[in-house]
């Protein structure tokens, strides 16, 4: 789908790309610092320039490549599902400072340093390019404009970005919500599912709530009391149950709509759809309670 230039949709997609770029940006300065710390001073400057240039080039190339990959049937769905998980990971609190696993030791030569920086950036940027590929609606121009705006901010204004998110942590939450919204859009646009979603419009709403309930779970779990915490599992599970019945009705051609049900079996199926999840929820709560009690007993005996 090509977006009309300078339309509301165009600027919205551009905003989504910039926001995604900012919240999912890798710490290039840290990588460069780690790689180039043992090189001579004049080589360090060259490594910073060529490393940054190479990282930007590979990022742009990967983003453009992703647009073509996402056009292949099935990849939009996979990308959307991956984005929901990326949004969840973004919002999950980081108690310990994460160490970089991409750089094991400082580079011994200029070429090795540049190569390490580019590879590290490519690995760190996979989630980023996937997200901007989904948000760009297939427009390469949008990706290039988005990168042209966000890359200089990240490379030369990283302190500014850190100050912004430190002052307003809600930017991260907005980023998570935008990622989730992009994921929903990608799944709904999946070529293999477009016709199915047209035939089952209610499934779109269930899917949107499901995506938000999974991606934003770390956020609302923080606000729930200990007794209500199982909701973070039960709510998505219940929505998957509902979607599963909707999908099963299409695959096995069974009637799950009670307004159209005619036989006793169809009415039973409808009942199973609405209340069939209750025993599973009860079982889950029982097992969880047992585990909590067991852990408490183990902790007490360890003291």
């Amino acid at each position: 789908m090509e977006l009309e230039l300078f339309s509301g949709a165009f600027f919205s997609a551009l905003l989504a790309i910039i926001l995604i770029d900012l919240v999912l940006a890798g710490d290039n300065a840290l990588i460069i610092g780690l790689v180039a710390r043992n090189l001579p001073k004049d080589s360090q400057k060259k490594v910073i320039f060529w490393g940054t240039f190479g990282a930007i080039a590979i990022r742009a190339l990967m983003a453009i490549l992703v647009v073509y990959i996402l056009a292949v049937p099935g990849f939009m769905l996979a990308g959307g599902l991956a984005l929901v998980w990326i949004a969840r990971k973004l919002l999950t609190p980081q108690d310990k400072e994460e160490e970089s696993h991409l750089v094991k030791a400082p580079a011994a030569s200029f070429a090795a340093a540049v190569r390490t920086i580019i590879i590290a950036d490519a690995v760190m940027g996979i989630d980023n390019v996937l997200a901007i590929g989904g948000a760009s609606h297939g427009s390469i121009l949008l990706i290039l404009i988005g990168l042209a705006i966000s890359v200089p901010i990240i490379v030369w204004g990283s302190q500014l970005v850190i100050k912004l998110v430190d002052r307003y942590p809600s930017v991260i939450l907005v980023g998570g919500a935008v990622l989730c919204w992009t994921a929903y859009g990608m799944i709904v646009r999946e070529p293999m599912l477009v016709a199915w979603f047209e035939a089952h419009p209610a499934a779109k709403l269930v899917l949107a709530v499901l995506a938000f309930s999974i991606a934003l779970a770390p956020w609302y779990a923080e606000r729930l009391s200990e007794q209500m915490k199982p909701l973070t599992v039960l709510l998505p599970a219940m929505l998957i149950w509902m979607l599963g019945f909707e999908a099963a009705s299409s695959i096995w051609k069974v009637q799950v709509d009670y307004l159209m049900a005619t036989t006793q079996g169809e009415y039973m199926l409808e009942g199973l759809r609405w209340i069939g999840w209750l025993p599973f929820a009860a079982l889950f709560l029982w097992v969880r309670e047992r585990m909590v009690l067991r852990n408490a007993r183990l902790a007490r005996s360890a003291q």
């Binding site: 710490d27 990240i154 970005v161 850190i162 998110v165």
Partner: peptide, 10 residues
């Protein structure tokens, strides 16, 4: 490592 993780608040 993400850039935003340099800020504890973020």
């Amino acid at each position: 490592m993400r850039l935003i993780h340099r800020s504890h608040r973020a």
